[in-house]
Write a protein that binds this DNA or RNA. Structure first.
Lengths: 357, 357
DNA sequence: ATCTGCATTGGAAGCGTTTCCGATCGACGG
DNA sequence: CCGTCGATCGGAAACGCTTCCAATGCAGAT
């Protein structure tokens, strides 16, 4: 198969020498206006005639002018950057969030400064030094419950803060309803006839954790149909596939194993499936399993799951940023996006001989 | 399970108000020296008496002074930022690369500016506008074959450029030997006794593609043992799991199906496995399958693969950046990292009745 | 026709550093 | 004892932009 090179596909670039250091003053001269007017025209401020602005814009475009962010900031403008703070990057959820944020932020001509704050040390260091201080106009914290001390530090930065992918008491946020997602899982499993439903509760050891909706939804759903939760059926583990696999083997070893398993995430569920298979059991024949996320690989694994709109959470959060940056006062404080059950082939009614009701 | 909150774990932050704008001039006055001397003392330049410097340093420390990065850079320093250009973020490979780059760059007190250049439009836009211009000291292009036109544009930025995760003719780069990886796959499969080995060739439709080592290694390995490659056994598809699944069904439909499949990546391989399973066949009993990458999920899927050290590629690339930024002249032009075969449970000798030799 | 007021524009003052260059001072050699 | 040189240090000029404030020009009002 012959692949066309990029340049074959009518991909042409201007070859003007933009390295020649050209400043706003050059654009101003080219447009025949003063420095001040050029600045106003480009920043879109009021008080510039439409024709003048057009002329300046054209000149800037022509010369492919880019303002020096340093000078702009120093003179009292915005930095044109927003910090995105993530505890992980390589996991699908965070990567997708990043893509979404980047997409709309870039559209608005904002640069994204990436802050990977992984372990506890990173975290302390980040809030202690506040490396983003004086460098950004806003910060987005992704799936990152901010502690009170940290909130105080962040406040010192004097910029807008938005939370994405997690509920938050103090900042505008966008997330999903974890408890509702858990209920969707449970409703499906209960409907199929399962009674002994285990939960693999995943937590991030590096993050402070408040009681997760993904857990409370499980208990609530169970109680609603009159089933008393069995502590043996709940195992808590680190986030991640390998951990899911280990958790599953604990579940398999109890006296009265579950007929269905609800995992807090697809990755955990996938790990659990390996354990089940290795134990000579079949999914869903012997054990049903459900995850949450709708990770791209979930469909490849034929995993039943609850889809959460990650990309949309990201774009929504980014729009929140844009709105607060524009100084809009009536910014939405909380956006909760809907989740959706996706039934695939990892769930089925329990085997008759293992039903317990 | 009760999770300790972050603050419980002896996590204490200073609560001084660092937002009080105090500038170098204040430090200078406190130390009883001039602005110029204070600057020199802090930047560690020569020409300052040891006692004077100590006095300035003490004053700065005392007031917990932080220089305004904007002002510092405007007056002529580096930006302290490096751009990382990636065609994808949410895929494991790129996320991991990003984490690795971020890790060492942050260590060196450099900020990373993320540029997601996905589709062809993004790409054109990026090289046309060069949004990173005047904003960074270096740029890292990740798994991104840079075209000649693009190279010329990049040159206009006047900064160092490093390539990570892909070979490159003009910039210092770090990558793996794709052809060698392919040979490792093939050696394993051939050793097991397979003769009809298919290849699912994955390409990124948005990236220009030169002949991939992952393909040439396949052909070379086959020819070396005297097997004439069968065009029917090679199917080219888009990168990704779903595409791998589709490719696999094409492979299953040919007159004389393969006994083993080599997929260019683990994700593609995982997709292929779904197809095989859905067709009522078993892995590895009926068909063996091997990927490349050692994606974290590969071990959960029990997929045999060739591991590439992604994180290490990232850190190495970052060190290349640091070295060139320090102005070192004898910077390594090319670093090729080793790959390693990881045998799991997706490969086995072909079934006797399907052997063709 | 003259005046008021608004829309537009230019001049100029910073923003907080770095760094060039000249000034100062003590020490040294002649 | 004086001239010269090197080590330090201070003054001041950038760096490239935003924005306050004053100036200009023109329309509509008087």
């Amino acid at each position: 198969m012959q692949i066309a090179s990029v340049s074959d596909r009518c991909y042409r670039l201007p070859m003007v020498d933009t390295s020649a250091k050209l400043n706003l003053i050059d654009v101003a001269r080219a447009a025949g206006v003063s420095l001040a007017t050029a600045s106003r025209a480009l920043s879109g401020a009021y008080g510039v005639a439409a024709t003048t602005r057009a002329r300046v814009l054209a000149a800037a475009e022509e010369m492919s002018y880019v303002a020096s962010p340093e000078a702009a900031r120093l003179a009292g403008g915005a930095t044109g950057r927003v910090a995105v703070v993530v505890p992980h990057i390589s996991r699908w959820f965070f990567g997708t969030m990043l893509e979404a944020l980047d997409s709309v932020l870039r559209e608005a001509d904002l640069d994204v400064l990436l802050y990977h704050v992984g372990g506890l040390d990173d975290r302390r260091e980040f809030f202690e030094r506040l490396p983003a201080r004086r460098k950004v106009d806003a910060v987005v914290v992704v799936a990152f419950p901010v502690e009170e001390v940290e909130r105080q530090r962040l406040a010192l930065m004097g910029v807008q803060i938005i939370a994405a992918g997690g509920q938050n008491a103090v900042y505008p946020y966008v997330c999903i309803d974890d408890a509702a997602a858990a209920r969707q899982v449970m409703a499906h499993l209960l409907f199929l006839g399962h009674r002994r439903i285990a939960m693999i509760e995943a937590i991030d050891p590096d993050q402070p954790t408040r009681p997760s909706g993904r857990s409370s939804g499980y208990y609530a759903a169970l109680r609603e149909v009159g089933i008393e939760p069995d502590p043996d059926l709940v195992v808590t583990t680190d986030w991640g596939g390998e951990q899911g696999a280990q958790a599953m083997s604990r579940l398999l070893s109890i006296a009265h194993p579950p007929t269905a398993v609800y995992a807090h995430s697809d990755e955990v569920a996938i790990g659990a499936i390996r354990t089940i298979r290795r134990a000579g059991l079949r999914v869903p024949d012997d054990i049903s399993i459900v995850g949450i996320d709708d990770h791209p690989l979930a469909s490849l694994i034929d995993l039943t799951t609850v889809r959460q709109p990650v990309y949309e959470q990201g774009t929504t959060a980014a729009h929140l940023v844009l709105a607060t940056l524009r100084g809009e006062v009536d910014v939405e404080r909380a956006v909760v996006l809907a989740t959706e059950l996706v039934v695939r082939r990892s769930t089925a009614p329990p085997r008759p001989d293992r039903r317990t009701d």
